[in-house]
């Protein structure tokens, strides 16, 4: 079996399209996860004990079960409770909630890294709690959290192939379809690997640069 460049070029448009969809899935899922993660972490810090407990257990549940199961749950179990979703919507929800749970732990680490004295100083100048989070705590929690957030951005991107199992036409789904049509799997799967590598490596580098930029912008370098 030899490598066929001509076929690679022939497949290229389909893969460009699928790459776009993969990036949309990862980006959309990540956006949901960033917001949900914040909701999860703040809910766990409210003085309302029942809210704290329920959210903490939910986050623990999500982190302790496979993403694939969660995707199946939203897509296949949902309709039995009257919640019928398209593969895209179900996929984005599942991946967003899954990574939201992980990001909430990253945020928690960041928030806990802010010294107690900062909270007290904010209280001593009478800042309301929301302003304290917005102006004092989150800006300081961000730099230590950026590295972890970046890792999960690459992680969510690499997990998008799982959406292929419910029919989201991302890269993996496209490669499998191409393989099934032609009985040639070498080129499509190799292309998937190459594309993932081509996106992941520069992303990791960009995250590193971004982290340094955040620290510098917030004046937190020595």
């Amino acid at each position: 079996m030899e490598w066929r460049w001509d076929w690679v070029w022939e497949l290229a448009p389909r893969f460009v399209d699928a790459t776009g969809k993969t990036l949309i899935a990862a980006g959309g899922g990540y956006t949901i996860a960033i917001i949900l993660g914040l909701v999860f972490v703040l809910a766990q810090r409210t003085p309302l004990l029942p809210v704290t407990l329920v959210v903490r257990e939910f986050v623990e549940l999500i982190r302790s079960t496979p993403l694939l199961l969660q995707i199946f749950f939203v897509y296949y179990v949902g309709p039995q409770f009257g919640l019928t979703l398209s593969p895209w919507t179900a996929g984005l929800i599942a991946i967003g909630v899954h990574y939201g749970a992980y990001l909430s732990e990253v945020y928690r680490g960041g928030i806990e890294s802010v010294p107690k004295g900062q909270w007290e100083a904010a209280k001593a100048i009478n800042l309301p709690i929301v302003t304290t989070y917005r102006r004092i705590v989150i800006p300081q929690a961000l730099p230590p959290a950026v590295a972890g957030m970046g890792n999960y951005l690459v992680g969510i991107f690499k997990d998008t192939p799982m959406l292929s199992v419910i029919g989201v036409a991302e890269l993996m789904h496209t490669a499998t379809a191409v393989g099934a049509e032609s009985y040639r799997y070498l080129e499509p799967y190799t292309m998937v690997g190459a594309i993932f590598l081509a996106v992941s490596l520069p992303s990791a580098f960009a995250i590193n640069v971004f982290e340094k930029w955040v620290r510098r912008t917030l004046g937190m370098t020595k």
Binding site: G117, Q118, A124, I125, L127, P128, T131, R135, I136, G219
Partner: peptide, 28 residues
């Protein structure tokens, strides 16, 4: 009615000296 200075200063590290002083008057 009350203001406090701490043993370890507890200045906000992401704000300048001026920013630290302005934070309360502007936000509160």
């Amino acid at each position: 009615k009350i203001g406090m200075c701490f043993q370890h200063f507890n200045l906000f590290p992401h704000m300048t000296a001026l920013g630290n002083c302005m934070e309360g008057p502007v936000q509160v």
